[in-house]
Computed example of a mutant assay.
Amino acid sequence: MSTGSERPNEGAGLSERDEAVLAIERRGWPGPGAKERAIRERLGISPTRYYQLLNALLDDPRALAHDPVTVNRLRRRRDERRDRRG
């Protein structure tokens, strides 16, 4: 049984957990705390770990192939934050 922590081999699709991370990002969230609660309840991980996984996914070509709209939106937002920091 897979724990979801393994990274698929190159050429394979995303893990269920990676797809779930992207699904959370695809949603709109009603207010502060709702997203963090969903992360803990649905994925069973801390928000800090979630954002580490998400950041790695943004550089994964399989994530881009799976959900290009979400990945490109998040890449733009990440790049804008980096530019503001200098």
Rank of each mutant, 00 (worst) to 15 (best):
E6P: 00
E6L: 05
E6M: 01
E6H: 03
R7D: 08
R7N: 07
R7F: 06
R7W: 07
R7M: 09
R7E: 11
P8T: 07
P8W: 01
P8F: 03
P8E: 10
P8M: 09
P8Q: 12
N9H: 10
N9G: 10
N9M: 10
E10R: 15
E10P: 00
G11K: 03
G11W: 05
A12L: 03
A12F: 04
A12R: 09
G13Y: 00
L14F: 03
L14Y: 03
L14E: 00
L14D: 00
E16V: 08
R17I: 12
R17A: 12
D18V: 02
D18S: 15
E19K: 15
A20S: 14
A20Q: 13
V21I: 15
V21F: 03
L22Q: 01
L22T: 01
L22K: 00
L22D: 03
L22C: 04
L22N: 02
I24N: 03
I24S: 05
E25L: 11
R26L: 07
R26K: 14
R27M: 11
R27H: 06
R27S: 06
R27L: 11
R27G: 01
G28E: 13
W29M: 08
P30R: 15
G31L: 06
G31V: 03
P32R: 15
P32M: 13
P32V: 13
P32W: 14
P32S: 15
G33L: 05
G33C: 07
K35F: 04
E36W: 02
E36Y: 00
R37H: 11
R37F: 08
I39V: 15
I39E: 05
I39H: 01
R40K: 15
R40H: 02
R40F: 04
R40D: 03
R40Q: 14
E41R: 13
L43D: 06
L43Y: 10
G44F: 04
I45W: 06
S46M: 07
P47C: 01
P47S: 01
R49I: 10
R49M: 12
R49H: 15
R49C: 07
R49Y: 13
R49S: 12
Y50I: 05
Y50W: 04
Y50S: 06
Y51R: 13
Y51S: 01
Y51T: 02
Y51L: 05
Y51E: 02
L53C: 12
L53S: 08
L53Q: 14
L53P: 01
A56N: 09
A56H: 08
L57W: 08
L57F: 09
L57K: 07
L58Y: 02
L58F: 05
D59W: 07
D59Y: 09
D60V: 08
D60G: 09
D60K: 11
P61M: 12
R62H: 06
R62A: 15
R62S: 12
R62V: 11
A63C: 10
A63D: 06
A63V: 06
A63P: 08
A63S: 14
A63I: 07
A63G: 08
L64P: 04
A65Q: 13
A65F: 08
A65K: 13
H66W: 14
H66K: 09
H66V: 06
D67Q: 09
D67T: 06
D67E: 14
P68R: 12
P68M: 10
P68S: 12
P68L: 10
P68A: 12
V69Q: 11
